[in-house]
């Protein structure tokens, strides 16, 4: 397996953020915080691990990507556009009426999306089903799944956690976007999550904590999960900052779902251009 370099992955992550901005600013706003902080994870998984075919999105040997935190649709869509599932211009249709790009992940309208999500807490179960099917069919498919820390208050998440361990779904590799924030405030104010690594370990998973915005750390963790299956599902807890990628977004008191003025867009783009220069990329 040949893996991407740090620079390549960072370039991909930047392109994902540019795609997110393109999508979200086209309709004056959206779920920026929990989309931005997933850029590095998506860059790693889609560059190095996801075996998919943009020409044939429903290829029956493909790996799956289930976004349980469905409001991060713009992030997934940006990665899919970069992979060639649909033209990048389509990102500008996000949430436009009649558009085929609804803000929440939608498998009916968007090629490459494996599950329709947005009602939180349901995606990890869907991922369990897809992983179990891979086991029953005897394929070597992998199933990736992305959950939120606020979302992890839902009981169904822990039903799925128990299920995945019981059925030894070591082809299931889940992420927890541990940005410590949800809508009404921090997890600690709203509903304490505690230590997610120890919780998943207690449920019988392999679980580890990685810096969620460091591509090489994520690459190592995913590589271990796919190369050393041990009969347990894997949870990679991404230690992130909600809105990571632009200081002006991170510094907002609440960046969950925000309106986007031209001014704000200008500020974000300035930061992204600066990052591009450092990576030797031309950013318009």
């Amino acid at each position: 397996m040949s893996l991407s370099s740090k620079r390549e992955l960072e370039q991909m992550a930047l392109n994902i953020r540019l795609g997110i901005i393109r999508a979200i600013t086209s309709n004056h706003g959206g779920h920026i915080g929990g989309s931005f902080d997933l850029a590095e994870m998506l860059a790693v998984v889609y560059s190095d691990f996801m075996r998919v075919n943009p020409e044939k999105p429903d290829w029956d040997q493909r790996d799956f990507m289930i976004f349980s935190k469905g409001h991060a649709g713009p992030a997934l869509y940006a990665a899919l556009a970069l992979k060639g599932f649909f033209p990048e211009e389509r990102l500008e249709n996000l949430n436009n009426p009649n558009s085929l790009l609804p803000g929440h992940c939608d498998r009916n309208h968007v090629p490459g999306v494996d599950a329709t999500t947005g009602s939180l807490g349901q995606g990890l179960s869907i991922a369990c089903g897809a992983a179990l099917a891979g086991k029953l069919r005897g394929t070597d498919q992998r199933v990736f799944c992305v959950t939120g820390d606020g979302e992890s208050a839902e009981g169904q998440i822990w039903e799925a956690a128990q299920f995945a361990a019981h059925y030894s779904l070591d082809n299931l590799i889940a992420f927890l976007d541990w940005n410590k924030m949800q809508i009404d405030g921090s997890n600690d104010e709203v509903m304490r999550l505690g230590d997610p690594v120890r919780k998943y370990q207690a449920f019988g998973w392999n679980a580890c904590l990685v810096k969620g915005n460091e591509v090489m750390a994520i690459q190592r963790a995913v590589r271990r999960a796919v190369e050393e299956p041990n009969g347990k599902p894997s949870m990679i807890v991404l230690d992130t900052v909600k809105g990571e990628g632009a200081r002006c977004i991170v510094e907002m008191a609440n960046n969950h779902c925000i309106g986007f003025s031209d001014e704000l867009c200008g500020k974000v783009m300035e930061e992204l251009r600066e990052q591009g220069r450092k990576l030797g990329m031309e950013v318009e």
């Binding site: 309709n27 959206g30 469905g70 949430n95 609804p102 803000g103 929440h104 939608d106 329709t116 999500t117 947005g118 009602s119």
Partner: peptide
């Protein structure tokens, strides 16, 4: 309720 979920779309 109903269509007042506007931009949150079908899941909401």
């Amino acid at each position: 309720a109903g269509i007042m979920a506007t931009h949150n779309g079908g899941t909401h």
